[in-house]
Amino acid sequence: MFEARLVHGNLLKKVLDAIKDLLTEASWDCADSGIQLQAMDNSHVSLVSVNLRAEGFDKYRCDRNLIMGMDLTSMSKILKCSASDDIITMKAQDNADTVSFIFESPSQEKVSDYQMKLMNLDQDHLGIPETEYACVIKMPSGEFARICRDLSNFGENIVIACSKEGVKFSAAGDIGTANVKLAQTSSVDKEEDAVVIDMQEPVTLTFACRYLNMFTKATPLSPQVSLSMHPDVPLVVEYAIGEIGQIQYFLAPKIGD
C-alpha cells in the first residue's frame, strides 16, 4: 500500500507545471524515504530530478518500493481538476496498475476521486556525481526568469559569467547584444530578494535559452533559485519545493565559439 497526503496540494500542481513541458512521461519511485523522479527531457539534452521527502507529507505510507510510470500530460490534466487549496492524496495498492488522486476541499465538504492508468516505462537512471561547484549563485527566482525571458529575444544562448563582483548574463544576435549584471546584495529587507554568490573561482559558461526558459516554469515553487556552475560540467538549476523537497535541472554547457 502506498499513500501520500499533502495538505498543501498546490505544491504538487506546481511541480507538474515545472516538468510537463520537458517530460511527457516519467516514473515516480516511491520508497519509505519519499518520492523521487528522475528523467531526461524528450530530446535527451537536460535532466530533471524531483525529490519529495516522506517527512514533508502530512501522511506518508509506503509498505513496498513502488515504481509508478505516468503519462505526465494525463497527471497534469487530473491535477488541474483540483482547487488550489485542496488537500491532495495519492494512493496505490501494491502491484496495482492504477493510481488514485483524491482531492478534499479544506472544509471536507467536497471530495473528488480520480484514477489514472500507470505505464511500464524503461528506467534510465543516471548516476549524478557529487560535484564541488566553483560558483553557486542564489538569486530571486522571478529575477532569473525575467532575465532568461528578456535575453531570449537576442539569441538562442545565454552566457553566464560569475565572478566575485557579481554575475553577468549576456546574449548576442541579429538585433544586437544584451547584458544584465547583478551584484551581490549587501543588505536586503527580505531574504528572498538577496543575490548571494559563493565563488571559489570565476566561471563563464554558455547555455541554451530554450532549456533555461523551461526550467523557469518552476518559479512559482520558490522565491529563490540557485545556479551551480563549474567549468565544463552541467549547470544545476535548483528550486525548493516548499518545505518538502527540491527540483533540480541539469544542463550541459554549449561548446565552441
Binding site: M40, H44, L47, I128, A252, P253, K254, I255
Partner: peptide, 12 residues
C-alpha cells in the same frame, strides 16, 4: 558555432 554537449557522458 555553439554545440550542445550531451549530458549522458557526465553522468555515467
Amino acid at each position: 558555432l555553439h554545440l550542445q554537449q550531451p549530458l549522458i557522458p557526465f553522468f555515467r
